[in-house]
């Protein structure tokens, strides 16, 4: 019998057991980016590093394309995917833009449109 599905919330992928199973190799590679050594290994040899961690072809393709939504679809957990940020020079607003089809500036403006407690918007 299939594992119970979590609630359908558009634009949201719950990182649950089945996704954690699917994404283990990808997340394990991104977990290695905690260290400078791990980040350098990926920077110096992306394909070799993906091979070493046993990423699926779909995961590799999402990484090659810097396709954040694709990585999430293939089981990536945002906590580990965010560790790509230092390697790729992307912050979480860049990640937000990449996932929502906005430029970083547009994503920032979207955040600001919901803001409180600041006088700079």
């Amino acid at each position: 019998m299939p594992v119970k599905k979590m609630r359908d919330i558009p634009g949201t992928t719950f990182f649950d057991g089945p996704m954690a199973t699917k994404g283990f190799a990808l997340n394990k590679m991104a977990f290695s980016f905690n260290s400078q050594e791990g980040r350098d290994a990926f920077k110096n040899d992306e394909e070799g590093t993906m091979e070493k961690y046993g990423l699926s072809e779909a995961q590799k393709e999402a990484v090659r394309k810097r396709d954040v939504l694709g990585m999430i679809r293939e089981g990536g957990s945002i906590y580990y995917l965010a560790k790509f940020g230092q390697i790729l020079g992307l912050n979480v607003q860049d990640f937000g833009g990449l996932q929502t089809g906005r430029t970083t500036e547009e994503f920032q403006a979207y955040l600001d449109s919901q803001g409180v407690g600041k006088d700079n918007g």
């Binding site: 558009p10 939504l69 937000g96 996932q99 803001g115």
Partner: peptide, 13 residues
């Protein structure tokens, strides 16, 4: 806050 997905960026103050 939400960091991931097409719904990234929603807040509800």
């Amino acid at each position: 806050h939400q960091l991931d997905g097409e719904r990234a960026g929603i807040l509800n103050t």
